[in-house]
Design a binder for these strands. Structure first.
Length: 328
DNA sequence: GTGTGTCAAGCAGAG
DNA sequence: CTCTGCTTGACACAC
């Protein structure tokens, strides 16, 4: 069981999401942004390893405009060594990684053009995994898509498009149950049609379900993952922010809710992505909770104090990101 | 330096 | 019709 957090480390002074405007696109800017993003990605992974956080979701913006036609720069070959080095680090430290292409990826859209661009985006993100030398246990996590007023048609259209995906993408795509449109039951139906594994989201299941108890839902979702080809089932974990709109995530891990959730696993193994606003801070607490229950490896010997944590009390008040280089 | 409108992309639902 | 939320804020220009 590994614990992870998505995309951003709030304690670090770098971002792996450097970008720029489409209107100001140039190869030079692309090279600058990708270089910075890969360097930061590497540092985040190293920090994660030092903290026992062995699961991580990479952001969609590592290569700005990675699937846009404007981007004709051969970044795959230009940055091959950097990607490979990150992949080697991932494998050497037994890390698990995933990607979550954004809401614009809609494989079941009635619009052929939207489907085409969606596949392009999956190819872009999957090609990063290829460049890192990662196998099919690294995943691309997406939603079923739109409802368009006809649930069965929407699901079957996903299945048809799924069958046409390039093999390297198809081996990595997993589908997440969502909180408003497509429930776990819909995803199980889609799994029967396509074999696509289901990435279970406990909070979405709480928002939208057909009465399946949490333990049963976990068992059903886990059963859609092939033990070797897909690896340990992944899941997203969150809980309801009290007093907020239904579906709103908490800002901070609610320890007792997480402990209660763990009781439903009944020995099932999952790699758990914490979708919680304060990111790595909650992930660290989740790791501690797993350790207190013997569900996770003991703390590694920390070779060095955590980078940038805790914040230097002598530092000037608030400076989450290191200030950009001053060119006075 | 700070404030802020806007940024490649889809869809559903609230108001 | 407009606005919001969704896995993640950051760019770029006005002042």
């Amino acid at each position: 069981m590994k614990i992870g957090y998505p995309c951003v480390n709030e304690a670090m002074d770098c971002s792996a999401a450097n970008t720029f405007r489409l209107a100001s696109y140039s190869d030079e800017r692309l090279i600058t942004a990708v270089s910075a993003n890969l360097a930061c990605l590497r540092r985040m992974l190293e920090w994660n390893v030092s903290q026992g956080l062995l699961f991580f979701r990479m952001g969609s913006g590592i290569v700005p405009f990675g699937s846009h036609e404007i981007n004709t720069f051969p970044w795959q070959t230009h940055f091959a060594a950097e990607f490979r080095a990150i992949g080697d680090y991932i494998k050497a430290n037994d890390l698990r990684v995933s990607f979550h292409p954004d809401q614009f990826v809609v494989l079941n859209s009635p619009s052929p053009d939207i489907v085409r661009r969606s596949i392009q985006e999956l190819v872009y993100q999957g090609s990063m995994q290829d460049l890192m030398g990662l196998d099919g246990t690294a995943k691309l996590q997406i939603h079923v898509g739109g409802l368009y007023g006809e649930r069965e048609l929407a699901i079957s259209r996903f299945a048809q498009v799924h069958a046409t995906l390039p093999e390297v993408v198809k081996a990595r795509v997993v589908v997440e149950n969502d909180d408003r449109l497509f429930s776990l039951r819909d995803c199980l139906h889609l799994h029967e049609l396509t074999g696509v594994p289901i990435l279970f989201d406990n909070f979405h299941h709480e928002c939208l379900n057909h009465g399946e108890p949490m333990a049963e839902a976990l068992r059903l979702a886990a059963g859609t993952w092939h033990p070797t080809a897909d690896g340990v089932p992944m899941m997203d974990y969150s809980s309801q922010a009290l007093g907020e709109r239904k579906g709103k995530h908490t800002d901070d891990l609610v320890d007792d809710s997480f402990r209660e959730f763990l009781t439903h696993l009944h020995g099932l193994d999952f790699d758990i992505m914490l979708e919680i606003k304060n990111k790595e801070a909650s992930a660290l607490r989740a790791v501690a909770i797993l350790r207190e229950r013997g569900l996770s490896a003991p703390a590694p010997n920390l070779p060095e104090p955590p980078l940038n944590l805790p914040p230097d009390p002598n530092a000037p008040a608030k400076a989450k990101r290191a200030p950009k280089k001053v060119v006075s």
